[in-house]
Write a protein that binds this DNA or RNA. Structure first.
Lengths: 110, 110
DNA sequence: CAAACATATGAATAACTGTTCATACATTCA
DNA sequence: TGAATGTATGAACAGTTATTCATATGTTTG
């Protein structure tokens, strides 16, 4: 999976068919949401920032696995982090995550 | 990938953390968007209904591959179809697809 | 500095996914 | 009915992915 998703190209309007490269990037973005562990991490971060260890405990997923997934979420610019001593706190990068997840929930909730 | 995504459970509000089963379904939904061939098919259907052969030609992807992907899109209730003689026309199931793709484009277009 | 703790990361592995190929199914038309 | 056309599908294969394990990096404290 691509580590970084850039978008300095093509039209951004949804009124036209997006170009190939944008659609590729789009698929890469959705791939990130296409794993339940990552979606769970994102939803946990809805509540606010959280350190790796806590996320790991809340999900009953190993610290290593969480760390690997956080790296992917970082790569997609969906989360940001700050270090405080030994601890690293992660939080949502912006409100897009909520919107995207909200869109999806609307669909499956019909 | 799950063939059918149901959502007759849990809260549908985005104000609360969705339950595990819903997050699993959500990830399954985003997995569908997480492939550029499928995203391209969906974007082609933005313009209106289209038969398998035409989709195949527009994407330079084999008829078989398109058909396989359409099956997945059908399973996720993202597309619908109607048969007219030998030809099967596919179209978007509803406007959620546009919204979801629009959300994603917003994110990568920053 | 050494020990303890929190996190990150590379390698290995098992499971999953998308395409291809061959072929089946469905429909029309001669 | 048989040939032609459009679509669907099962099996196989190559490529990808998420987790685990071992270990490295970074930080604090004694």
């Amino acid at each position: 999976m691509a580590e970084h998703i850039h978008a300095d190209h093509c039209n951004t309007s949804t009124d036209h068919i997006p170009c190939d490269e944008m659609l590729y990037d789009l698929a890469e973005l959705y791939k990130v949401f296409g794993d339940s562990t990552r979606v769970k991490i994102l939803c946990i971060l809805f509540e606010g920032e959280m350190c790796v260890q806590h996320i790991s405990e809340m999900l009953s997923v190993s610290q290593s696995a969480v760390s690997h997934q956080l790296r992917i979420l970082k790569g997609a610019r969906l989360v940001k982090y700050r270090r405080d001593g030994k601890t690293v706190y992660y939080s949502l990068a912006d409100d897009h995550v909520r919107e995207i997840i909200g869109c999806g929930i609307e669909h499956i909730s019909e």
